[in-house]
């Protein structure tokens, strides 16, 4: 094989390798989560966040409008404080919207679903969502079920 041919193949090889890396980064990995455009931050408190993690999606009617940017614990009332980073494009969420922690499928990852309220004012940077629904914990559900059945009897 001539030197020309070898060098061409090396070029092809390197280009395809780089292309593979780029493809993996952009189209396989969650590039949007990394570069997430400017967003405004809103907090919400939950009794139990279940399996919610940082970078979990925040959805409105099923459309992803942002990500969870941080999770911390409130020292006073022992609840969880979740900070949502919502895309600027979705700045028309009524101030009395609610946030619930939902599960995608049976074993799926958990995410926050936002249900819009009715107020005229919109949520802005630094606001809080007051009405929240915590994650459903399986053990609690079973316990409730048993108690309710016992009660019925």
């Amino acid at each position: 094989m001539t030197l020309q041919a070898k060098e061409t193949l090396v070029g092809v090889f390197i280009l395809s390798g780089l292309a593979a890396l780029v493809w993996l980064t952009l189209f396989v990995g969650n590039w949007a989560a990394l570069t997430g455009g400017a967003g405004y931050r809103v907090t919400a408190k939950f009794e139990n966040i279940g399996g919610l993690t940082v970078k979990s999606p925040v959805t409105l009617a099923g459309v992803t409008i942002g990500r969870v940017s941080s999770i911390s614990s409130d020292r006073e009332d022992y609840s969880a404080i979740v900070t949502l980073s919502i895309d600027q494009n979705y700045n028309n969420l009524p101030a009395d919207s609610t946030a619930a922690i939902l599960t995608a499928g049976l074993l799926g990852a958990q995410y926050i679903g936002v249900v819009p309220g009715a107020e005229v004012d919109y949520l802005k940077e630094g606001d809080s969502i007051y009405i929240t629904q915590s994650a459903l914990v399986l053990e609690q559900l079973i316990g409730e079920l048993l108690f309710s059945r016992a009660g019925a009897q």
Partner: peptide, 16 residues
């Protein structure tokens, strides 16, 4: 599901 679950920094870059 792949797109949701594979994180660029933690998974792809870690592998690189």
């Amino acid at each position: 599901s792949m797109h949701e679950g594979v994180d660029v920094v933690h998974d792809v870059l870690a592998g690189v």
